[in-house]
Measured scan of single mutants.
Amino acid sequence: MATVKFKYKGEEKEVDISKIKKVWRVGKMISFTYDEGGGKTGRGAVSEKDAPKELLQMLEKQ
């Protein structure tokens, strides 16, 4: 499965596409929420050019 690499609050993070719950576009950025486990929801964003094609496909399906 594909992963998304991004920075959040200065920390490098990587999340599996299957854990992503919601995806939306903000200008040229793709924002998303994902399941961190333990009932927590994380947030992240990547630029449109750095987003994996699976993430862009999720955006188109909504």
Rank of each mutant, 00 (worst) to 15 (best):
T41R: 06
K53A: 04
E54H: 09
A2Q: 12
G27D: 15
E54Y: 12
S47G: 11
K49A: 07
V23C: 13
A45N: 10
K13V: 14
E36K: 03
S31I: 02
K7R: 09
K5I: 05
L55D: 00
K53W: 08
Q57I: 14
M29N: 10
G27A: 04
F32E: 00
M58I: 10
G37Y: 11
E54D: 10
M29Q: 11
G44P: 01
M29L: 07
K7H: 14
I30N: 01
K49P: 12
D35I: 15
A51N: 02
D50P: 04
E12C: 09
A45P: 01
K9W: 12
K5G: 01
K13G: 04
S47T: 13
V26W: 04
T41A: 10
Q62G: 15
F32Y: 01
I20G: 00
L56K: 10
K19L: 13
E11I: 07
K21T: 14
W24M: 04
S31K: 14
M29I: 08
K53Q: 13
T41Y: 13
E48W: 05
G27N: 12
K53H: 14
E11F: 05
E12D: 09
G37W: 14
M29G: 11
S18M: 10
K21S: 15
G38Y: 10
Y8K: 07
E36L: 07
S47M: 08
V4L: 07
Y8I: 13
S47F: 04
L59H: 03
V15L: 03
E11P: 01
A51C: 07
T33D: 14
V23L: 06
K28E: 15
P52E: 04
Q57M: 12
G42H: 11
F6E: 00
K49I: 15
L55I: 13
E48D: 05
L55Y: 00
G27Q: 15
G38E: 11
Q57D: 09
V23P: 04
G38K: 14
P52T: 07
F32M: 10
K7N: 10
E60D: 15
K7G: 10
A51D: 02
E54N: 07
V15G: 01
G42P: 11
Q57V: 09
G27M: 09
F6H: 02
M58W: 06
Q62I: 06
K9V: 02
L59M: 07
K19T: 07
D35M: 07
L55Q: 01
Q57K: 08
K49W: 05
G42K: 06
G44W: 02
V4I: 14
T41V: 10
A2S: 07
E36V: 05
V26L: 10
K40T: 10
E14F: 03
G27I: 03
R25G: 12
W24G: 15
G27T: 08
Q62R: 00
K22I: 10
K5Q: 13
F32P: 00
M1P: 06
V4Q: 00
V4C: 02
E60A: 09
Y34N: 01
L59E: 08
R25S: 14
K21M: 14
E60K: 06
I30L: 10
P52Q: 08
A2V: 08
E11N: 12
E54I: 10
D16E: 11
K22W: 10
M1L: 05
Y34D: 00
D50N: 11
L56I: 09
K19N: 13
P52K: 03
R43C: 14
D35S: 12
G10K: 03
M58E: 14
E14P: 00
Y8F: 09
V46E: 01
K5H: 11
K22S: 08
G42M: 06
T33S: 10
V23I: 07
V23R: 01
T3H: 03
S18T: 07
K40P: 12
V4D: 00
F32S: 00
S18N: 12
L59D: 02
V4E: 00
G39A: 11
V23F: 02
M29C: 14
T33W: 13
K28G: 14
T41I: 10
V23D: 00
Q62F: 12
T33A: 14
L56D: 06
V46G: 01
D50T: 08
K53G: 10
Q57R: 03
V15K: 01
K21C: 15
K13F: 08
T41F: 14
V4P: 00
W24V: 12
S31E: 13
I30F: 05
V15A: 05
S31C: 04
G44I: 05
D35T: 05
G27E: 14
A45Q: 12
V26E: 15
V26Y: 15
R25N: 15
K49Y: 11
L55M: 05
A2K: 09
R43L: 03
T33G: 15
F32N: 00
F6D: 01
I30R: 00
D35Y: 05
I30Y: 02
I20Q: 00
K9M: 14
E12H: 05
V46C: 06
V15P: 00
M1R: 06
F32G: 01
K21L: 14
I20K: 00
K7S: 09
K9P: 01
M29V: 06
M58P: 01
F32W: 01
G42F: 12
L56M: 10
G44E: 01
K49H: 11
D35P: 09
K22H: 04
E60Q: 03
K61F: 04
E36Y: 10
E11S: 08
K19E: 13
D50S: 09
G38N: 09
K5N: 04
G42T: 14
K53N: 11
M1V: 11
K28S: 05
K7V: 11
G38F: 14
Q57L: 11
I17P: 02
Y8M: 07
L56E: 11
L56C: 04
K28N: 10
Y8Q: 10
E54A: 07
K19I: 11
V46F: 02
V4S: 00
R43Y: 06
G10R: 02
L59R: 01
G38P: 13
K49R: 13
Y8R: 03
E11G: 11
K40H: 14
V26S: 15
L55H: 00
K22C: 15
K13I: 14
R25Y: 08
Y8G: 02
S18A: 07
I30S: 00
Y34Q: 00
Y8D: 14
M29R: 08
E60C: 13
V46Q: 05
S18C: 14
E36Q: 05
V4M: 03
A45V: 07
D35V: 05
K53I: 05
I20R: 00
G42W: 11
T3I: 11
P52D: 07
K5F: 06
G37D: 15
Y34M: 02
M29K: 12
K13C: 11
E11L: 05
D35E: 07
R43S: 10
